[in-house]
């Protein structure tokens, strides 16, 4: 409860800071924040283009939120198990890339999902293994892997798989894409995120897994006190490896939901910032799976709504990243506060 209140406080303070900055820029913060909600399909816009409505906006919003749920769950379970996985971006990119390549041979949505899970899990397991075998800090390996993967994927795309017009990778074939793009419904064109139900199901499953299974009990014990876990007869190394494998698999799911769903292509030369935003989301959600879904909802409003906000108010869309950054800062502070509150 205390955690929840602190998270709310973090959001409120961040929004107030954002408002202050908007006001200093000579903009109307209330109008700007309204635009965020409108852009996310949560409030009516003044007018809509053809074949669009608040409903289509909302469905696009869900489409953007789906990978964020996976990514934040990836961070959350790693934190529960005592790891700081900041390599979600790399895991996303690797998974997205592998899925793209496989879809060239076998265009199947199921295969895309499975490939994403496996690619991410392998990377996560590798980090866990490096940690316990050589005691290399996972923060270091995950940052390094982000760069390695990004450059490898960039090299391959630029050399063999580029769409010369968009300067992105070629697009994934529709039969393998996890988002039904431009689906005709009544007189609307809707984007349907097919992975969204999976994201919610995975969050619920993870909640149950952490609270009710022996594995969950072990992961939490190792995360909170490795020495006590060893004393309890747990195999700390094996459990750490398991934690990172699950975290990586979730990062991989985020990757396919993003690169083979929300987007249909991979942009070379950059890692998705979602992998880092996911840290804010996870902290904001108290590293709790259900909390992650709620926090993903909030953060996605800011990131998704920022495009509409910037066009209406003539504000740089980066202001949204700024507010997210505030939230990360305050959420990190509140994580410390909630620990202090316990004594």
């Amino acid at each position: 409860m205390r955690k929840f209140l602190l998270s709310c406080l973090a959001i409120i303070i961040s929004l107030l800071f954002g408002a202050l900055i908007l006001w200093l820029m000579g903009k109307d913060p209330i109008a700007a924040y309204t635009n965020l909600l409108q852009g996310s399909g949560l409030m009516h816009k003044a007018r809509y283009a053809g074949r669009q409505s608040m409903f289509t906006d909302f469905m696009s919003f869900i489409d953007a939120m789906t990978p964020m749920i996976f990514a934040s769950l990836s961070v959350a379970i790693a934190l529960k198990g005592g790891f700081f996985n900041i390599g979600v971006s790399g895991q996303m990119m690797a998974a997205g890339f592998v899925a793209h390549m496989l879809s060239l041979a076998v265009p199947s949505k199921i295969l895309v999902i499975v490939a994403g899970i496996i690619a991410g899990a392998v990377l996560g397991a590798l980090m866990g293994w490096l940690k316990y075998k050589f005691n290399v800090n996972e923060v270091v390996t995950s940052i390094m892997f982000n760069s390695i993967i990004m450059y490898l994927v960039t090299f391959y795309i630029n050399t063999f798989y580029i769409n010369p017009v968009s300067r992105q990778s070629k697009s994934i074939i529709d039969t393998a894409r996890l988002t039904l793009s431009g689906y005709r419904w009544e007189n609307l064109k809707v984007d349907i995120a097919l992975a969204f139900p999976l994201a919610v199901a995975v969050a619920l499953l993870l909640q149950w897994f952490l609270e009710r299974t022996t594995y969950g009990y072990e992961i939490k014990a190792v995360g909170l006190s490795p020495k006590a876990a060893q004393y309890a007869g747990m195999n700390v190394n094996r459990i750490s490896l398991l934690t990172m494998t699950i975290s990586g698999a979730l990062g991989g799911l985020a990757g396919v939901a993003y690169f083979c769903g929300y987007l249909a292509s991979i942009q070379p030369g950059t890692t998705p910032s979602m992998g880092f935003d996911a840290i804010a989301v996870s902290l904001l959600g108290g590293n709790n799976p259900a909390g992650c879904v709620l926090a993903s909802f909030l953060i996605t409003i800011i990131s998704k709504g920022s495009i509409y906000m910037s066009s209406r108010q003539h504000i740089e869309p980066e202001i949204a990243s700024l507010i997210t950054a505030f939230i990360l800062t305050f959420a990190a502070c509140s994580a410390v506060l909630s620990r202090k509150g316990k004594k």
Binding site: T214, Y217, K220, A221, L224, S225, K227, A228, A229, Y231, A232, G233, K342
Partner: peptide
């Protein structure tokens, strides 16, 4: 070392009781 070894301090009392026999 009852703090770092004997107990998982951030677990509830209930969860600490079966610490060595939960499985």
């Amino acid at each position: 070392d009852r703090h770092n070894v004997g107990l998982v301090l951030d677990f509830t009392l209930r969860d600490n009781f079966p610490l060595r026999r939960y499985y």
